[in-house]
C-alpha cells in the first residue's frame, strides 16, 4: 500500500466514523445491553435482579407458547411476503400497460401504503365484522367469523397485510420498469419473442435485483409484524395470531419481566439477522454476476 493509499483510507475512516459512532451508540450498545439483560431474571416491580445465565433460553426451548409464536411468525412471513411479491409484480406489469387513469391508480396504491397501520387495522376490524362487514357481504352473506375462528384469523391478517404492503412492491417494480429502455423490447420483438417469452427472458431478469431488495425489506418487516395482530386480534383466538414480537411485548411491557422478554427479543434479533445475512449474500452474488 502506498502512502497515498494509506492516507486515503484514513481520510475515509475519518469521514465514516461519526456515522459508525452514532450507529454504535444507538444500536450496538443497546443490543449488547438487551443480550446481557436476557441472561438475568429482572422484574423491577419486585426488586428482582439476579444473573440466571441461559435459564430463560432453556425455558423457551420447552415453551409451547414460544414455539407457537415462532410458527405463526414464519407462516405469516412466508405467505404474506410471497403473495405481496406475486401481486405487486402483477400490478406493476398491469400499470406499465395501462394507458388511461395511471395517475389515479398510483394514488390509490399509495393511499393503502401511506395509511398508518393502526388505521388499516381498525378499517379491517369493520371489513371483517361477521354480520355487518363488507367482506362477508361480498362473499355472499356468509357469516365467516374472520377474526374469531382459529382457522381464519391468520389468513385474515395476512390478507390485511397484503392489502397494505403490496403497493410498496408494486411501486418499486413499476419504477424499475420505467427505466427499461424501449429498445430492449424492440430487440426482443425483432428476435421473435412473444409476450410470454419477453416477460420470462427480458422483463423478469431485469426486475430480479429490485425484487430481491423488495423481498429483503418485506421479509424483515414481516418477521417483526406487530401492529396488525395487536390491534385486530390481540394475538388470539387461542394465540393463533400471536407472533414473536407480540409475545415479546407482552412479556416485556405488560408483565415487566425484563429478562425473559429480552430473551424473546434476542431470539427475534437472531432470526432477523440470519435472514438478512442470507439475503445479503444472495444480493452480493447477484451484483457479482450482473
Amino acid at each position: 500500500m502506498t502512502a497515498r493509499e494509506r492516507a486515503d483510507r484514513l481520510a475515509g475512516l475519518a469521514f465514516v466514523s461519526p456515522a459508525l459512532l452514532a450507529l454504535a451508540a444507538l444500536t450496538v450498545y443497546p443490543g449488547l445491553w438487551v443480550l446481557w439483560l436476557s441472561l438475568q431474571q429482572r422484574v423491577p416491580i419486585f426488586g428482582i435482579a439476579r444473573f440466571v445465565g441461559l435459564e430463560h433460553y432453556a425455558f423457551l426451548a420447552g415453551d409451547a407458547r414460544f414455539w407457537n409464536a415462532g410458527r405463526v411468525t414464519l407462516v405469516f412471513t412466508a405467505v404474506s411476503v410471497g403473495l405481496e411479491l406475486a401481486l405487486g409484480l402483477a400490478v406493476a406489469l398491469a400499470l406499465q400497460r395501462q394507458r388511461a387513469g395511471r395517475r389515479l391508480a398510483l394514488s390509490l396504491l399509495l393511499l393503502a401504503w401511506a395509511l398508518p397501520s393502526v388505521v388499516t387495522a381498525k378499517l379491517f376490524e369493520w371489513l371483517y365484522h361477521p354480520s355487518a362487514g363488507l367482506v362477508n357481504v361480498i362473499l355472499g352473506g356468509h357469516a365467516f367469523n374472520w377474526l374469531g375462528d382459529p382457522r381464519l384469523a391468520l389468513p385474515g391478517l395476512i390478507a390485511a397485510d397484503v392489502w397494505r404492503t403490496m403497493p410498496f412492491v408494486a411501486l418499486l417494480c413499476y419504477a424499475r420498469l420505467l427505466t427499461i429502455a424501449p429498445e430492449v423490447y424492440e430487440a426482443a420483438r425483432v428476435d421473435g419473442a412473444g409476450r410470454g417469452a419477453t416477460l420470462a427472458y427480458v422483463t423478469l431478469p431485469l426486475l430480479r435485483p429490485i425484487l430481491l431488495i423488495a423481498l429483503l425489506f418485506r421479509t424483515l418487516d414481516a418477521l417483526r409484524a406487530f401492529d396488525l395482530m395487536f390491534v385486530l386480534t390481540g394475538g388470539g383466538p387461542a394465540s393463533t395470531t400471536e407472533t414473536l414480537t407480540v409475545y415479546a411485548y407482552r412479556s416485556l411491557f405488560q408483565t415487566l419481566q425484563l429478562g425473559f422478554g429480552a430473551a424473546v427479543g434476542c431470539v427475534i434479533f437472531a432470526l432477523v439477522m440470519l435472514v438478512a445475512w442470507a439475503y445479503l449474500r444472495a444480493l452480493r452474488g447477484e451484483a457479482a454476476t450482473a
Binding site: H129, P130, S131, A143, W146, L147, G148, D149, T233, G236
Partner: peptide, 12 residues
C-alpha cells in the same frame, strides 16, 4: 351466543 363473540370486545 354468535361465534364471532370470540373476537368481540366492548364496542363490537
Amino acid at each position: 351466543s354468535p361465534a364471532w363473540v370470540t373476537a368481540g370486545d366492548e364496542e363490537l
